[in-house]
């Protein structure tokens, strides 16, 4: 079942002489339960692609369908609501709120929706993240890996259709990196979570079902593993 379809996605920054084409008519689709890695050099356009899929930025041209819905036909607010229900975002710099503890940071997307989650589900999630004994800690009391696990928890808690991870291991040592990658793989396998991950580390990309290489804003190569 196709969960994501990207059609002719184009993003141009700047005007006239200063024009930069970040994405140039990119098209591909992702099936439910797939783990896709997007690789490419710095400035190849992979982050732009991820932001567009996540609906945090709007394209110059082209369309993105998530679960059959054209997300850019939504206005900003509707898009925001769609995002918090259907898309989980994981960033390189975690982007946790420093004055909220682990549990609160994880619960944030649900809270925005005035929803809550039963204690058991939360406990299971924290256990899976290996954060069950850190639930009341503030971000600056955690290691980088723990912070990133928190942000993965935040992405998973809403049971999103799609998880987008932007260089989730870019800021971590190799041990923590392995942990994070394992965690993502686990959620993909056990929960059937669809994941799109950006990385420039070929080793990490290997764990994906499929690797898409972006060069100069175009898809250069697609490899299924």
């Amino acid at each position: 079942m196709e969960i994501l379809r990207v059609e002719n996605l184009t993003k141009i920054y700047g005007k006239d002489a200063a024009q930069v084409v970040a994405l140039d008519h990119v098209s591909f689709s992702v099936e439910k339960g797939e783990f896709v890695a997007i690789v490419g050099e710095s400035g190849s356009g992979k982050s732009t692609l991820l932001h567009l899929i996540g609906g945090v930025d709007r394209p110059t041209d082209g369309k993105v369908f998530i679960d059959g819905k054209d997300i850019f036909s939504f206005d900003d607010d509707k898009l925001a609501i769609f995002r918090r229900r259907q898309v989980g975002l994981i960033y390189q710099f975690y982007n946790l709120i420093p004055i909220l503890n682990v549990e609160e940071n994880i619960m944030l997307p649900l809270s925005l929706d005035n929803r809550t989650v039963d204690k058991e589900t939360l406990d299971n999630l924290l256990k899976m993240l290996g954060l069950d004994n850190r639930r009341t800690h503030l971000p600056n009391e955690l290691s980088g890996g723990q912070q990133q696990r928190t942000s993965i928890g935040r992405a998973l808690v809403t049971n999103p259709t799609l998880i987008l991870a932007d260089e989730p291991t870019g800021n971590l040592d190799s041990k923590s990196s392995d942990e994070i990658v394992a965690l993502l793989k686990k959620s993909n396998k056990e929960l059937g979570q669809t994941i799109i991950m950006i990385t420039h580390n070929p080793e990490i990309a290997k764990i994906a079902d499929r690797v898409i290489k972006i060069e100069d804003g175009r898809i250069a190569r697609e490899v299924s593993l």
Partner: peptide
């Protein structure tokens, strides 16, 4: 950050 995890402008 709140916006990226789906907070609306109104919120």
């Amino acid at each position: 950050m709140l916006r990226s995890i789906g907070a609306t402008k109104k919120q």
